[in-house]
């Protein structure tokens, strides 16, 4: 199932997005470029501030960890040098998590990370902050194989799927830039290099557009079942945004 996204729906923020996928729902808002506090000001770059708020309660070290990961990844795609001495403020509010989230037994930071990355990107696109590229991200889970044969990695599994495949040996989150460069990798659990390599390949297949393959507009079936390539999905979302903005041209 492809993720659902609504763009620019908060009218007080410069850019906003709500993203829903596999029971995860995150609201993102971006304000910027705005005036930066003197102590955070950098003479030749923009300051990026990321705030992650959990679905329940107040922020904990888990949210701080997510903020650090997001900050480093987004700093590398925002053209910070074209808007020096300003602040880009990104606020992400987790609205809901799937019920089975706690009982899956995998690192909940990693299961949330791809969704939160996508929300942040969509909100940045909605705020028209200059970016050098876009990013797509996915979660790969490798279940432990009972009888010595290598387990097939689960691509972007839902929480019930993870629960059924229990015990999970390792989970990996990958993020790729629009040109196919790997931007982020976070792995957790026990795995061999071969397994990691296989996971990275599976993630690249979902995240990046196939080289020299089918044209943009056509839906490409990855493995025949997943049916969504994230880059094609992203283009679809942006196309809807642009069509909404340009509809006055054809209005009567």
């Amino acid at each position: 199932m492809a993720p659902e996204a609504i763009l620019s729906h908060l009218h007080r923020a410069d850019g906003s997005a709500t993203y829903t996928h596999n029971g995860y729902c995150v609201i993102g808002a971006v304000n910027g470029p705005i005036e930066v506090q003197r102590r955070d000001e950098m003479p030749e770059e923009a300051t990026v501030e990321v705030n992650v708020r959990p679905a329940v309660g107040v922020g904990s070290p888990k949210e701080r960890h997510l903020e650090t990961l997001l900050h480093n990844t987004l700093r590398s795609i925002i053209l910070t040098r074209s808007i020096p001495r300003t602040l880009v403020q990104i606020t992400l509010q987790v609205r809901s998590l799937p019920e089975e989230e706690i009982s899956t037994g995998v690192n909940t930071t990693l299961t949330l990370l791809p969704h939160i990355l996508h929300t942040a990107l969509l909100a940045l696109l909605s705020a028209s902050i200059p970016l050098s590229t876009v990013l797509t991200s996915t979660l790969i889970a490798i279940p432990s194989a009972p009888n010595a044969r290598p387990a097939t990695p689960l691509v972007s599994p839902t929480a019930p799927e993870l629960l059924r495949a229990k015990p999970i040996r390792s989970v990996h989150v990958f993020a790729f830039a629009g040109d196919g460069r790997m931007l982020l990798n976070e792995s957790d659990g026990v795995f061999s290099f071969e397994e990691w390599d296989e996971a990275a390949e599976a993630a690249e297949e979902v995240c990046c557009k196939e080289e020299g393959g089918v044209g943009l507009g056509e839906g490409v079936d990855v493995d025949g079942k997943e049916g969504t390539n994230l880059e094609i999905w992203l283009r679809e979302v942006v196309k809807r945004k642009v069509e909404l903005e340009q509809r006055w041209k054809s209005a009567r």
């Binding site: 620019s8 410069d14 850019g15 304000n31 910027g32 470029p33 705005i34 053209l79 074209s82 696109l125 909605s126 705020a127 028209s128 902050i129 200059p130 970016l131 050098s132 942006v238 945004k241 642009v242 903005e245 340009q246």
Partner: peptide
């Protein structure tokens, strides 16, 4: 650098991105 629609003007030899969001 931003998401939008590409617009061009042959007479002025200019290209830009049309968008309506942000600050």
């Amino acid at each position: 650098t931003i998401a939008g629609a590409l617009a061009t003007d042959n007479r002025k030899n200019a290209a830009w991105i049309e968008f309506n969001s942000g600050r």
